[in-house]
Design a protein around this nucleic acid. Structure first.
Lengths: 186, 186
DNA sequence: ATCGTATCGTAACAGTGTTATAAAACGAAA
DNA sequence: TTTCGTTTTATAACACTGTTACGATACGAT
């Protein structure tokens, strides 16, 4: 599907505002109607990109190796989260920000995207079983907290609203480690 | 300025996509040109709303009383952060999300907005001086970490991409407390 | 009262997503 | 191979967006 590839390129190279149907159609030598017969419109095209973004994202997160230190595994997942987001930052804003007015993913696509979160919860569960993390805390809650600090820091970074003159990478790691420590058994 | 008031209403009630210049001008019985002579265009109008959003936001955060337990103060600031964001959620997405393509606040407006962050850092400093938080950690970093988990959770909540069937308020508080605990001296 | 600036209305321009209509391409059945 | 039916495509128009040139109006200070 040349259209989808080119849409991904346009999104990555020039951002969401360059992703107009006329521009896209002209780039692959067709007309805008193609988008409607093949996808169903611009929202559906965004849905496909949303899906693609989460596919890449989940692929990379799942690639983090599993060691016998689950808390350290979580840190590595977090670092991978940031790397992946920065690598596909234009996809990231489609996935996690309202970059296109009134765009919402299909519930089907949304459910598929939710799978990205599963390895995090599993690793948290291992940390609980391990005795590293507090028992009697729902692993989804801990996972969500760690996921959120990643999302919060990364989106602030991508939107350029972080204090300037800040070496972000070490700050990110430090923040994630502290956040994980908050769930540790003492 | 009736235009700005109506723009805020439109933004709050119907979201950013309802904020078109023609709609806005018609609602206050004028024409779109008024926006250009009074503000300078739609980006400048958004800039004014961005400013207004941060003004309200900062006002509420600064209203959190200062006790002799700075860590607890930080928790209260965090809870206020969420309350304020949910109260003005359409403003929040203008402030922290790319809801209008290629919109960026003026550096002047951005600097004013940055002031919102100051009370957080000050409270963190008090927690360090207090002996509650680890010394030799930059208060900006700790403040940023706490700010980020608030931002991460709240934006996930506002965008509706949180696991369904979740009582968010207690999860939010639990996550913030754990995140703060991560910076505590043991 | 007059001048100069600021504001406003009308209308047009370029761009967007979307859709009706008709032509073309393709695949399967006769 | 030929025919039929579905899918895909191209053209053009529609309604909408932000923006701007132009002219008229209103307002405030000299």
């Amino acid at each position: 599907m040349k259209l989808l590839n080119r849409a991904g390129e346009l999104l990555s190279n020039e951002g969401p505002s360059a992703l107009s149907l006329r521009r896209l159609a002209a780039d692959v030598n067709t007309s805008t109607t193609a988008v409607y017969s093949l996808f169903g419109g611009k929202p559906a095209l965004l849905d496909a990109l949303y899906d693609e973004g989460f596919r890449r994202f989940g692929e990379r997160l799942a690639m983090v190796p599993e060691t016998d230190d689950p808390v350290e595994d979580l840190i590595q997942i977090a670092l991978t989260y940031r790397d992946s987001a920065l690598q596909d930052r234009q996809f990231y804003v489609v996935m996690f920000s309202k970059v296109v007015p009134d765009f919402m993913p299909t519930t089907e696509t949304y459910i598929a995207a939710s799978g990205t979160f599963v390895p995090v919860v599993k690793t948290v569960q291992r940390a609980i079983d391990n005795g590293s993390f507090l028992p009697n805390e729902a692993p989804e809650v801990i996972g969500l907290a760690l996921w959120s600090i990643c999302h919060g820091l990364v989106s602030l970074e991508i939107y350029g609203i972080l204090p300037p003159g800040l070496e972000i990478a070490p700050v990110f790691e430090r923040a994630v480690r502290a956040s994980a420590d908050g769930w540790r058994t003492h």
